[in-house]
Amino acid sequence: MTEQHYPVPTPDQVEALMDNPDLTWEDVPADEAPPVLAESEAEEVMVVRSLRMPLELHQRIRAEAEARGVTWSELLRDWAAIELAALSDDQPISRADAMRALASIPPRRTA
């Protein structure tokens, strides 16, 4: 990996920036501050998490994902959603099962 060098401002440059009359500083109460992300944007954010598991479990999950034609991450997201829905008495199906069901519907005949 190559080392990258970024310019480091001098204390005088930092002071000049902070004293710039075009900059304004104000405290905004947390409940009045705009959200970092809009609600619609927050739904699209994917969070990366690290997960430790036994090798055998990882291999079984990977094999199941391959058999279903989905990624390891998609399978785990589906399983987590199914379990959470079950906890709230919902009746979920996995994305992979939904895609298989939709693919099995014959095309509509046109006259």
Rank of each mutant, 00 (worst) to 15 (best):
R100Y: 09
M18T: 07
P107E: 06
S50P: 04
T71I: 08
S104K: 13
R52V: 09
E3M: 03
E15R: 14
I61G: 03
D78W: 11
S88V: 00
M18Y: 02
V47W: 03
Q91L: 03
A38K: 14
A96E: 04
L76V: 12
M99N: 13
L55F: 02
D90I: 00
E3Y: 02
L23K: 14
D31V: 00
W25K: 09
E32L: 09
E15D: 11
A33K: 14
V70G: 06
H5R: 11
A42R: 14
S104E: 13
R95L: 05
L55N: 13
A42F: 05
S40N: 11
A38G: 07
E39G: 04
D97W: 03
Q13E: 07
S50C: 03
R68H: 00
Q59K: 10
Q13N: 08
I93Y: 04
V28R: 14
P11Y: 10
L75H: 06
I105E: 05
Q4N: 02
R108G: 09
Y6L: 14
V45Y: 05
M18A: 06
D78M: 14
A16Y: 11
D97I: 10
I82Q: 10
Q59F: 01
M18E: 01
A96M: 10
D90A: 12
A86D: 11
A85T: 02
E44C: 02
P107C: 02
R95N: 06
V36Y: 05
A111E: 04
E74Q: 15
A81G: 05
D27N: 11
E56C: 10
W25L: 02
L37W: 10
S94N: 11
V28I: 14
D97R: 09
T110H: 09
D19N: 09
S50K: 12
S40I: 01
M1Y: 06
A98S: 06
E26M: 03
V47G: 00
R68D: 04
L75V: 05
V47S: 02
A65I: 00
M99D: 12
M53T: 10
V8P: 03
A111P: 09
T110E: 05
I82F: 07
A33T: 05
D12V: 14
P92N: 13
A80I: 04
L55Y: 05
Q59M: 00
E26T: 00
H58V: 03
I93K: 03
Q13F: 00
S50D: 07
W25M: 04
L102Q: 15
R62N: 06
E83M: 06
T24R: 15
R108M: 13
L75N: 08
